[in-house]
Each structure stands twice: as structure tokens, then as C-alpha cells.
Design a protein around this nucleic acid. Sequence first.
DNA 1: CTGAAAGCGCTTACAG
DNA 2: CTGAAAGCGCTTACAG
Lengths: 361, 361
Amino acid sequence: MARRVSIKDVAQRAGVSWKTVSNVVNERPVVRADTREKVLAAIDELGYVPNHIGRDLRGGPTRSIALVVPELQNPYFARLAERMQAAARERGYTVSVEVSLHSAEVERAHVRGRTARPVDAVVISPSALEPSDLLDRRSGPPVVLLGESLTAAPNVVHVAIDNVSSAADVVRHLVGTGHRRLLFLGAEGAVRSTGTDRLAGFTAASRFAELPLEDALIRATGAWDRESGREEVLRALEEGIAFDAVVAGNDLLAIGALAALRERGLRVPDDVAVVGWDDMVEAAWTVPTLTSVAPDLDALVAAALAAAISGAERGTEQDAERDAGQAAAGADDSGKRGASRTGGAETVIAHRLIVRESTRA
Amino acid sequence: MARRVSIKDVAQRAGVSWKTVSNVVNERPVVRADTREKVLAAIDELGYVPNHIGRDLRGGPTRSIALVVPELQNPYFARLAERMQAAARERGYTVSVEVSLHSAEVERAHVRGRTARPVDAVVISPSALEPSDLLDRRSGPPVVLLGESLTAAPNVVHVAIDNVSSAADVVRHLVGTGHRRLLFLGAEGAVRSTGTDRLAGFTAASRFAELPLEDALIRATGAWDRESGREEVLRALEEGIAFDAVVAGNDLLAIGALAALRERGLRVPDDVAVVGWDDMVEAAWTVPTLTSVAPDLDALVAAALAAAISGAERGTEQDAERDAGQAAAGADDSGKRGASRTGGAETVIAHRLIVRESTRA
DNA sequence: CTGAAAGCGCTTACAG
DNA sequence: CTGAAAGCGCTTACAG
């Protein structure tokens, strides 16, 4: 349909130069009140919205952040995305939700800034990313990792609950309600991840409580979804492994466990207790309802956003410094930059165990 | 961190003019093979990704589509978004997922193209949008409405399952399994919507089957989520309304109904059968599992995307035509434009009723 | 307080 | 086949 209305249309309508319109839009205090009114009126009549593309191209901050999640099928990520977008909107930022579908390539591209549209920062819940992807990068936007510290790398910070202690909390709760043979669902490979940290906490606490820790009680799953959880619990049952509780790496796996136990006629929590992580909304609606480790989601979103924005603003400053430096004399400012980029900051988010029917004594 | 690598860096590295790089990137067949190789090598070494912002600003297609959904908390929308983004990626388009949180203002802004970054088309699952929002607009991107035809408007098409007949299918299934007092959950207001169409089909089929249709059996809910479904069923029960089946406007409401019935000691499906719409993944995991109307999601995504892309391409052509016309003589090309913009196209997506435990005889 | 200039990265005609 | 020019919408110095 008709052409988009540009700053020049507004200028013409208001009878001023189009640079003046820019001054009004950007709330620069140099415009006389009546000129300002005229311009505002014209903006309103024409329904003008500044085209951010012009600004973006101009350089400087785009005020946009990419949120990269492995999938949106997992309601935890869906909720996270929804909250992050709403919270960012309030702060004048735009969040573009990118679904990686567990593709290392997609994750890498974002982390390295190899995307068609530049952003000021990327918040990523990594799934296939490897430490080297973060260490190798010679450039790229500030990165906020949701979850474990894959590795310490410059310009990368982490926001996560304390997965090791939350796992210990889970074990304590289970031991306190009389369970001893705990099956861990969702063991993962070598790269440090949410799963490896939860397992580490599980193992440490189990050892401390002198619980059995046979290999057969530590189970990997194909994926972290309902069906994988169900299949792995069925498999354990078929193998004749005895256990009186399932500690699942997330709620989806736990829901699958619930289904497997029901299929085999085992009662939850009487025969087997079940716990998960994430406190998805669904956890309050399963039969029986599901005990789960709940991250303080508001805090998580706020911290991730704050880190992204501060990274974005720092990034912009640095660019300014660097440009200034280059313009001045091509000076080597590596010292200065190194200082402001010390990475490895980790924000720990509070969590609590929401006890529901799947683990009552 | 370091400046983004631009087309000029590549040109310098390859020892050609930067316009030649553009020719290579855009696969224009005017570049000699060895020049081309050199450029490709430089692109690879530098990790150059064309900055789409430059293209966007240049005008013409951005190859990006906005998908506006009311919420991501509803797993149906989350899955839709995930699929749409993946499908679009395959076709060289970008999908930006925008959560409106049921805000009429946000929905309106997108439909009118009053957004900070222009897109080629918008696919929207409207929640608060009114017919006038579509009729009034004098400009804006091609719109694909997911769901009912709010109204016939130029440059707006619809993609949806046949909600009226799917509701009739639900009633037929219920009558066939011996149910007569059906409670409808999720009645909505005056504006035509998914809910009103499902209710219309429900009402028509009920009348045809000579089922009771008292006002008390048609229930509105606060929202279309689990808790609203639960509350409304509890309310109906408290009012002493007798019913032997619940027809819920979506699966979330149905899951709430399941919980309410369980709380009151009613057995599903023996005492009360329950059906929903959407066939969310969760429907296969509830207790009992939930009978649901499943849209052919692949077809829905494909149709919505095809409609958006064809709208986008048509839009671009028109712009070209218009510009040409203006350049030539400021000719009035309204006739031409009117013809290519005839709106009101509706694509009907196949659906089927997935029968699960919540309605077995 | 307002106006004219330069430039962000790219593409689209056009000239050589 | 390759190069130089203009312009998309905007902001950021700078001049009047």
C-alpha cells in the first residue's frame, strides 16, 4: 500500500526543516515550544513512526537485543521469551526471539554477530555451543549466557540459578521424606551445562547422604522432552533397576517419568517420588501435581536484561572510544579495552523448591 | 568489540571494487569466475555477512515478516511461532515473533505498519483487534489473519480451520458416544472470532441433534487458559448445572475443566467427557489424555507463509509500478492497484478430531 | 533556536 | 565484465 511516511513528510506538513523534526523526535531541548507543537501535531496527523532502520544504519546503538533459545516448544523458554520481550519493551528495547532448534551453527552465528541484522547484545540459552565458540571469537556483541558458565571468556557473562545447590536441595528434600534410591534423569556429555551441574549437585549430595550411586541410576536421555523422559524411565524399569524417586533434569522429563510410572502401575509419590526443574505452569496441572525447582523468573529476566543492556551500552562507549582513538592517532588502546571487558561475571538467581503432590511424604 | 566487517573490507581484501562484491553476494551473473572466487575467499576469511540494514533502507523487500501472537504462554502459539520461523528460514525469510499480550494497541500498530522496523507482511493471530482497525487503515503491510475473518478488507487474507464444522464434528462425536447435555466453555463477545465461530457450530449442531441449549450451558470465561477453565467449570457445578460433556474452546480450557472435574470427584469420561481444540502436545500427556481438534499445522504454517510471501511480493511490485507511474507522469494508477488488492481470500485448513481417553465411550 | 552537510551499508541503474 | 554515482531515513557534528 501507500509509501511509508518519512521524516520529510512530517517536515513538509509542519513547515519546518526535516532536521528539526529529528530534533523533536529525539527530544533534544533545542526546539522552541511552538515549533515543537506544530511538529508533534503533524506527526500525529500523519501517524509517523521513526524508521529505526535509518538510525540502525547510522551506527550506534540499535536498542535491540537477540534472545536465542533452543526451542519454543518447551514452555519454559516460551515463557522466558514472553517475559523478556515485555520487560525490554518497558526499557525501550526490542527483543527479537530466535529459535536455534539446537543448531550449533545458528547459535554460533549469533554469538559472533554474523547475523543479517546487527543487535546491541545477545542473550542466549546455549544448547550446542562449545567453549571454543566463545573463546575464538575476535568480535561479536556482548553475550549473556543463560545457564552455566561454558567457559570464562571476554565480554561474556552468565545468569543462572545455582544448579549445584538446587540439586542438593532436591536430594535433601527426598532424603527427608524417606527416599534413598534416587534415579537421575537427563545426564549429559562432557561440556559443562545445566545438566552436568545438576548432576554434579545430585552426585555430591547423594554421596554426602551415603545414598547408592550406581551407574544404572544415572540415566542419559535422547532429548529433554516428555517422550524422552517416559522412554528412559520405562527402560530403567525393564532393566529391573530399583528406585524410589526420580530426579529429572527438567519438568518435561519429569512429566514423561510420571507417565511411565503410571503405565507400569506405580503410584506417585507412594512408590516413586518425582521432581523436576523450571516450575513450568503445567507442573501445577499434572496428575499428581509436580514438585519442581522454581527459578525466580522475574529476577532472572531482570538480570539478563540488565546485563544485556549494560553490555550494549558499554559496547557503544567502547566503539566511541576506539573511533576517537583511531581518529586521533591510531593509538593502541588495547589496555583500556581489556580493562572494561574482563569477563566471567556470574549472576546467581534465587530458586526455591515448590513441593507438590509428586513428593509429599 | 571490533567493528563489523563491511562490504568494503571484503573489497579491499579481494582487491576489487566494493560494487563487485555486491554483485557476487547477490549472485548476479555478471562477474567473471576468477574474480568471483577471489571475492568468495575474502568473504570466507573475513566472515563477512551482508548487513541487511543497508538493503532494508535502500527500500524494496526486507524479506522479513512479523508474526504477532497474543501470548507465548499458550503452547499452541509457541509451537506455531517455532514452526513458522523454521519454515520461513528455508525460504530465505526472517520471522520476527511479536507478543502482543492481548494489547489492541500493539496489534493495531503492526497491522498499520506503525512499527519501528518495516516488514514485508504481517501474520497475526488477533486478540483485541476490531474490524474497524482493518477497514480504516489507509496504508500498511499485507496482513494474514490467523483465524476468523474479522471482516473483509483490502489486502487482508485469512487462514484458519473451519471452526464451525469442526465444532459440529465435536458435537457429532459426543452425541455418537451417548452424551446429550453439552456445556460450552469459552463463549465470547460480539466481534467475530475463533470463539464465536466454534460456538456457532456448536449451537447449530446441538439444535440439529435436538440437544438442550439452555443459557446456563453456554459459559464465558475470563481468559482462555487453564485456570479460567477450571474456575468456570467449578462455578457451573456449584450452580447445580447438569452436563455430561464439556466442549472447551481450546485445550487449555479443557485442561482446566479436567482439573475441576477431578476436584469434584467426577470421572472423565464416564461422568463427563471433555474435548478441546488445538491438539497441543500436552493433550497427549494429561490424565486422562485429551480428545482435541487438531489443525493440520504444517498446512497452516505453509499457507500462512505462502500468503504472507505472496502479499510481500505483490506489495513490492505495486511499489515499483507506482514509482514508475509517478516518474512517468504522476499518472493515476488507482484502477490498476484496486484490481490487485481485492481482499477477502480465505484459506481453509484441514482438521481432524483426535480421539483420546477423555471421550472414549 | 534552525538549517545545510556528511555518512552509515547497501542496491540499482548507468557508463566505460 | 568492472567502476563511479545517487539515494534509502536517519543522526551527528557544525555553521548561521
